[in-house]
Design a protein around this nucleic acid. Sequence first.
DNA 1: ACAACGTACAACCAACTAGTTGTAGGTTAG
DNA 2: CTAACCTACAACTAGTTGGTTGTACGTTGT
Lengths: 120, 120
Amino acid sequence: MSTSDEDRADAWFHALADRTRRDILRRVLAGEHSVTALAQSYDMSFAAVQKHVAVLERAGLLTKRRQGREALASGDVEAVRSVGLMLGELEALWRGRIARMDELLATPDTTPDTTTHRTD
Amino acid sequence: MSTSDEDRADAWFHALADRTRRDILRRVLAGEHSVTALAQSYDMSFAAVQKHVAVLERAGLLTKRRQGREALASGDVEAVRSVGLMLGELEALWRGRIARMDELLATPDTTPDTTTHRTD
DNA sequence: ACAACGTACAACCAACTAGTTGTAGGTTAG
DNA sequence: CTAACCTACAACTAGTTGGTTGTACGTTGT
């Protein structure tokens, strides 16, 4: 398959790494907006905003539906959740380290304060 | 100071938008690793890996401590949580839909400039 | 019909990125 | 002391990105 998890993650994080795109995503998660409506919110050309929308669309973070001459964009909350899930897996790796350290700390009594709490 | 939330988010997502950096982050979240040890895991020069580590460090996703001639890197799980939190806020926007458009419109530069919009 | 609107994309440009090699400084081992 | 090791950074190259303008095409309103 062409689109591996890593490819998808690349696209997700790249799309989110631009503040204009994050702002666009906020708006289209809050509700449908046409590309022109979005473009009027930013101090840049329509073409620039259109490209930002295209990046978000290619990353699967928003979808467009056509209504007449307008392209109405809305955010895909499932994709956002997927990104969050990936971060959760990173966190799990960290928890795994702590778990092993807990085993180590069961025997001695060195009370290191760097690993005191595990919010779960 | 001007390290705004958006600046920090730019750095976070940019750092995460590279698969080598994500992999490095996985390793250092699971446990401390020297830069050389990390570099040996990838098919690229030491300098390249060192730069990836520097990007992650600048983004606050990992910290380094010096031990002798080695620089031991470990992942900062709090930063990872912060990224997840930001995604959670996006999700909240979706849940609210329509509701809080005012806060949304307060965030960016908001140029409600018109483009000859007349209805007559 | 026709002008204005909404969208998409191509071509171009400056700035940045991810990789390279090379160099230099601090640290450990013999 | 000397050599090997670990790290950091500078300089360079090729590819990518975020912006621009211009063009083309379908849709809407008069």
